[in-house]
């Protein structure tokens, strides 16, 4: 306030101008983000969980937009209006703080952050882990019938086992539409991670651990399964196509698999939450 660049022109009310700029641009940008960008956000509507993530991503983006605008507009504003004239040696005002602004900032950011955490917690519990690996004993379990499917990760392929269909194991993942699926992800060697991107599911496969994730596909589709935890030389090649089909088509398919893989099913170990095949440690 004491430092006047040009004695003739009065200093504009920066606080009011900047606040107006920020509020107006936030009021414009935030609805745009919610209604224009929101619906097209990943991972799409492949499953209830994926649709939930789209909502979460939209909420987080909507909260992030004003914060982003606050700092970016501030930086632009400051670099236009708070410049040192070329070759100038002007000093700024010797202000060392403002307890009201500081208190307000602490309170507002804390409230924002706490509400974010509360929102995340509610969403996580309400959606039974929101498609993420929730350990061997998930805190919340969806009601109603569930189709258990075991995902066995190994270096470097996923195979899938259907315990309710005679423990048949298959090379591809096929799921019935509109049914709650209980994925049991485990590994027989190193850490992998099962990621069905379009279904919004990700669960690490740890050796000796039964990691459960729930997913309910909402329409027929094909989706890509990828490994998302570095697991060795073919980590990048550990992908596979899966399909969501109608329940009737699923029944047909699984019976085909039972016939086709009858020789292999005979020699499989009995279905179990985890497996520790030989060699358990170092090979001889």
């Amino acid at each position: 306030m004491a430092a006047e660049t040009h004695p003739g022109t009065p200093e504009p009310n920066h606080a009011r101008r900047f606040t107006a700029l920020w509020v107006i641009s936030s009021l414009i940008a935030t609805p745009l983000v919610i209604f224009l960008l929101g619906p097209s956000l990943p991972p799409g509507n492949g499953s209830e969980q994926a649709s939930g993530h789209v909502t979460d991503n939209t909420v987080l983006l909507a909260m992030a937009t004003p914060v982003l605008l606050l700092v970016v507009i501030y930086l632009i504003y400051a670099s236009i209006f708070f410049r040192q004239p070329k070759g100038g040696v002007l000093e700024g005002p010797a202000v060392r703080g403002d307890s009201r602004v500081q208190t307000a900032w602490v309170v507002i950011t804390s409230v924002l952050v706490l509400s974010l955490a509360a929102y995340g917690t509610v969403r996580l519990l309400a959606d039974n882990g929101a498609g993420s690996g929730s350990g061997p004993k998930p805190l919340t379990v969806p009601k109603g019938p569930k189709l258990p499917v075991q995902v066995i990760a190994q270096q470097w392929a996923f195979t899938y086992r259907y315990p309710t269909y005679g423990g048949v194991e298959t090379t591809h993942l096929e799921l019935p539409d509109n049914e709650m699926v209980e994925l049991h992800v485990t590994s027989i060697d190193v850490i992998h991670s099962f990621w069905a991107y379009k279904l919004g599911v990700k669960a690490d496969a740890n050796p000796g651990v039964d990691n459960i994730a729930f997913v309910k596909p909402t329409h027929e589709q094909s989706f890509e399964v990828r490994c998302s935890e570095l697991c060795g030389i073919w980590h990048g090649y550990m992908f596979d196509k899966g399909h969501v089909v109608s329940p009737a088509a699923f029944e047909t398919w699984i019976h085909e698999q039972q016939t086709k893989f009858a020789p292999a099913t005979k020699v499989l170990p009995p279905y179990s939450k985890t497996y520790s095949p030989e060699p358990t440690r170092r090979a001889e």
Binding site: D56, L60, A64, G120, L124, D127, S193
Partner: peptide, 17 residues
Amino acid sequence: LSGVFLSDSPSDTDTHG
């Protein structure tokens, strides 16, 4: 701000790894 997406456990399902 991108860290907020990662810290949110449901949203982290997509972005993790």
